[in-house]
């Protein structure tokens, strides 16, 4: 878990903001996002549906829906993406970043042999020869754990189960030997046992290939124990950001804490009443002036409704949260 001295940021976002027009006026989809991910580290991005997790990834990758206005600075491996021409940017992202989405069926073409689909990015971005791409694809199919990779190369997507299709997507994401692998809800549609296998695979690959990884999930359990840092999104804002173990051990933001207590726990007896979070996430067309969580927060005071809390650090300097009245710091037990 210690940062290796040689590490430097593979990805960083500074003051990133995304806006989009809608019938009810401009939507503030993401507000003032700041984070930085070092090489060989894993970041978890969590938040409930609509929090902005996928939009954040899409905006970074330059695949956001038409009409999304992105401001701020995004740096990939030290290069400012906004300074690049669209073609150069796509090429850089294509080579440096591999991505796996939730639904493999919508990412895989049902009429094309999976081997060819895996090769595609390699041929486009690295200019690999046909033979070279083919042997890489077969190597990767075996690497992600598909039996008989040479046969699998010729199969079509429908011949695989959900978990296997997700492995194929991972293979496709690895063809350009990316420095950063992003998995957006990549295991959400899978059974727990298969989910565990795919998460284990991602983690193994990350370590073996010395990559950085971003795991996006609405399920806090998925990122726990598998990431170094986590970023908690609420209504388009980062509300808490820090070392994963710190944030789970001692959540400081009231929303993070509420989310954790709403989850049924394996060590609670049957029929334990769960804590709920009354109300709804903020309306992005008409955000409250102060803390976005204020209308639902049991600890909100007048200030919370008026002033947007800034990110500040606790005793652990890299554990940051945006709350006027945070939860108490728990002393470290040695």
């Amino acid at each position: 878990m210690d940062a290796t001295p040689a590490s430097h940021p593979i990805l960083s976002c500074k003051a990133m903001t995304c806006e989009m027009d809608s019938v009810s006026g401009p939507l503030q989809i993401l507000q003032d996002i700041n984070f930085s991910l070092d090489t060989r580290r894993a970041l978890g991005i969590v938040g409930e549906s609509g929090a902005g997790k996928s939009m954040l990834i899409k905006a970074i990758m330059g695949i956001a829906p038409r009409g999304l206005r992105t401001k701020g600075r995004i740096e990939l491996d030290g290069q400012d993406l906004s300074a690049l021409k669209p073609k150069q940017r796509a090429k850089l992202i294509g080579r440096k970043v591999g991505i796996v989405f939730q639904n493999p069926m919508s990412s895989l073409n049902p009429f094309v042999q999976i081997g060819r689909q895996i090769e595609e990015a390699g041929c486009i971005h690295l200019g690999m020869s046909k033979a070279e791409a083919r042997s890489r694809a077969i190597e990767l199919l075996s690497f992600v754990g598909l039996p008989d990779p040479e046969d699998c190369y010729n199969y079509y997507p429908h011949q695989f189960s959900g978990g296997m299709k997700q492995r194929i997507m991972i293979a496709a994401a690895l063809i350009c030997q990316p420095d950063l692998l992003i998995a957006d809800e990549a295991t959400t549609a899978l059974d727990v046992t298969v989910q565990k296998e795919v998460l284990d695979l991602l983690q193994t690959i990350q370590a073996q290939r010395q990559m950085s990884m971003i795991l996006v999930s609405h399920n806090l359990g998925v990122v726990a124990g598998r990431t170094d840092e986590i970023l908690v999104l609420y209504g388009g804002n980062v509300v808490e950001y820090g070392p994963t173990s710190e944030v789970f051990r001692n959540p400081r933001h009231r929303y993070t804490e509420a989310l954790l207590s709403a989850m049924p726990a394996m060590d609670q007896p049957a029929h334990t009443r769960l804590r709920t979070i009354p109300g709804q996430p903020p309306n992005l067309a008409n955000r409250p002036a102060g803390c976005p969580f204020a209308p639902r927060c049991p600890s909100a005071q007048a200030k919370c409704h008026e002033v947007m809390p800034a990110m500040s650090a606790g005793v652990h300097p890299s554990h940051r949260f945006a709350c006027h009245f945070p939860l108490a710091e728990i002393a470290h037990v040695q």
């Binding site: 754990g145 565990k196 193994t204 989850m263």
Partner: peptide
């Protein structure tokens, strides 16, 4: 064993099991 639990103290060690 596959249930993803929120446990601050646990670092998951991947196993290479394949179903």
């Amino acid at each position: 064993e596959a249930v993803p639990v929120v446990d601050a103290t646990r670092k998951i060690e991947p196993d290479g099991k394949r179903t």
